[in-house]
């Protein structure tokens, strides 16, 4: 564990909690892509199946449970509790266009051809593109609320910090995971456009379509 990893995890946690609180406090999930949240719930579920097979650390176990719990709570709020406020008309990204190719790729490029390993790889690839429905929704409506942009900013910071974490691990531990690194770079690039708008236009982001 290094400072970049820890800060990245905390930034990720902050993003998840910001989103949950936003929906809970405003009693509305307007502007939030339920499809992205379903994808994130799927990402955590397929990645953290190792909760059942191996123990890494108390920190690791706790964070995994919190991430999974929050992901499902968010999906529940969007599709059940505050369904009336859900922006389904604009949340039209076809997630099968992400899930099918990502599923195929995880069968072809993985560390080990075993069920758990393929699911883990699937989760890594899927996470890298899971934010696309959310960015698509913002481009369709033409704007995002301030709090939604904070959420996206925290997610982007988390990804960027993980890149530094991998650089650190490569230099000081000789460790690298090519699958995680390539997917992480792709994911970070997806946030660059958003970062640029966030910094130049302030918090009120409107992605030009």
């Amino acid at each position: 564990m290094n400072i970049f990893r820890l800060a990245g995890d905390l930034s990720h946690l902050a993003a998840i909690i910001i989103l949950l609180l936003k929906i809970w406090k405003t009693r509305s999930c307007a502007g939030i892509s339920g499809k992205s949240q379903i994808l994130f719930a799927l990402v955590f579920t397929t990645r953290y199946l190792d909760l059942l097979t191996s123990f890494i650390s108390l920190y690791n176990t706790c964070m995994k449970i919190i991430y999974i719990g929050c992901a499902y709570a968010t999906v529940h709020l969007i599709y059940m509790k505050f369904k009336a406020t859900y922006d389904g008309n604009h949340d039209t990204f076809r997630i099968e266009f992400l899930i099918v190719p990502v599923g195929g790729l995880s069968f072809l490029v993985n560390h080990d051809f075993s069920p758990l390993e393929i699911l883990w790889t699937f989760s890594i690839y899927l996470e890298s593109v899971a934010i696309l429905p959310q960015l698509f929704l913002i481009s369709k409506t033409g704007e995002a609320e301030t709090i939604t942009t904070h959420y996206l900013f925290c997610l982007g910071v988390y990804r960027a910090l993980y890149l530094f974490n991998w650089i650190w691990r490569f230099y000081f531990e000789g460790f690298f995971d090519m699958i995680a690194i390539v997917a992480g770079v792709v994911q970070t690039i997806l946030y660059c456009d958003f970062f640029y708008l966030y910094v130049t236009k302030g918090e009120k982001v409107a992605i030009p379509s």
């Binding site: 890494i56 690791n60 964070m63 560390h111 531990e173 000789g174 460790f175 995680a180």
Partner: peptide
């Protein structure tokens, strides 16, 4: 541990 998967990460 070169090229091994990062299972200890989140």
């Amino acid at each position: 541990e070169d090229g091994k998967s990062a299972k200890d990460e989140l």
